[in-house]
């Protein structure tokens, strides 16, 4: 089958896969909200806009107000931006490092592989959060970008493992042998011969890293080690719990941020499985 035909076939199944449709719609919805949301509100996230303090959702304050009279909707849409940023940067960085290490280990094999694999396994065993906690605790001022970078730097091991295994299985294929015989440099072979054949797989890895980064950030933010100069969904939950929203029944403060994280990450996972079915004909449901 020609490459062209394969591509159109993939697209054909992609458009008809329900998991993919649902997943992408949800992500798209939140993405649009991220960009449009700030235009719909004329407050800043930490402005004290409601002198009456905490009030349930109303026509004026769509998601209600916090105990200090801050607009929850405003915080929410700005928090979404932080969430997507962490996902893209943290997830992207994690995938990138995973790709570099996975490709090198899988393609070179031998001692290089042994060493990289050992390092990967060691980093894999050390609980990421413990490291992140310590790093975060030392930094007095933290931005979302810094947070994303730290998250990406600690999230790569399983991506590296997965990519290494895939590279191993591709390495012995004929087209790679041919390229090697023709004297191509290893990195050119990796990027011209191996990577294109793993594109779909790398995409799946990125999606999972994306979701993982979002959850990691929420954890950090929730225990107060998130950004010190911005608003995020995890931080909203942190504040809600810190100021007794639970006992006071201010549910509109802590429900939206968690719900959004759950929906976005869940949609990412569903998209992942949907894509897997599209790329892998055996899994398609007839």
């Amino acid at each position: 089958m020609s490459k062209r035909k394969v591509r159109s076939e993939t697209l054909y199944f992609a458009l008809r896969n329900n998991k993919l449709r649902v997943g992408l719609s949800v992500i798209l919805f939140f993405l649009v909200l991220t960009f449009v949301g700030p235009l719909l509100t004329h407050y800043a996230p930490y402005d004290y806009v409601n002198p009456l303090g905490a009030q349930p959702p109303s026509a004026k304050y769509w998601f209600g107000t916090t105990m200090f009279g801050q607009d929850v909707f405003t915080q929410f849409v700005h928090g979404l931006k932080a969430t997507f940023l962490v996902g893209v940067v943290g997830g992207g960085l994690g995938t990138l490092i995973g790709i570099l290490i996975g490709f090198t280990a899988g393609y070179r094999g031998g001692v290089v592989d042994e060493v990289l694999n050992m390092i990967t396994n060691i980093v894999l065993v050390i609980p990421t959060l413990a490291i992140l906690l310590i790093i975060a605790a030392y930094l007095k001022v933290r931005g979302i970008l810094t947070e994303s970078i730290f998250i990406g730097c600690t999230a790569w091991p399983w991506a590296a493992r997965a990519i290494r295994a895939q590279t191993f299985s591709l390495r012995s294929r004929e087209f790679v042998d041919l390229a090697r015989l023709s004297g191509m440099s290893p990195w050119r072979i990796i990027f011209t011969e191996i990577a294109p054949n793993m594109m779909s797989y790398l995409l799946l890895v990125f999606i999972l890293q994306f979701g993982g980064a979002i959850l990691n950030a929420a954890t950090l933010d929730f225990i107060g080690l998130g950004p010190t100069n911005a608003v995020s969904l995890g931080l909203m939950m942190n504040n809600a719990v810190l100021w007794g929203a639970l006992l006071l029944g201010i549910w509109w403060w802590f429900v939206p941020p968690g719900l959004a994280i759950m929906a976005i990450v869940g949609a990412l996972y569903v998209t992942n499985v949907g894509l897997d079915e599209v790329f892998n004909p055996k899994l398609r449901e007839m």
Binding site: A218, G234, F254, G258, I261, M262, A263, G266, Y269, V270
Partner: peptide, 26 residues
């Protein structure tokens, strides 16, 4: 299974908060 996806995508603290609020406070 959609429920499974929802559960596994739920941040731990949020589920905890919800359960605490629902079964503890309400």
């Amino acid at each position: 299974l959609p429920l499974g996806y929802i559960l596994t995508a739920t941040p731990y603290m949020w589920l905890g908060i919800l359960l605490a609020w629902l079964f503890g406070v309400v």
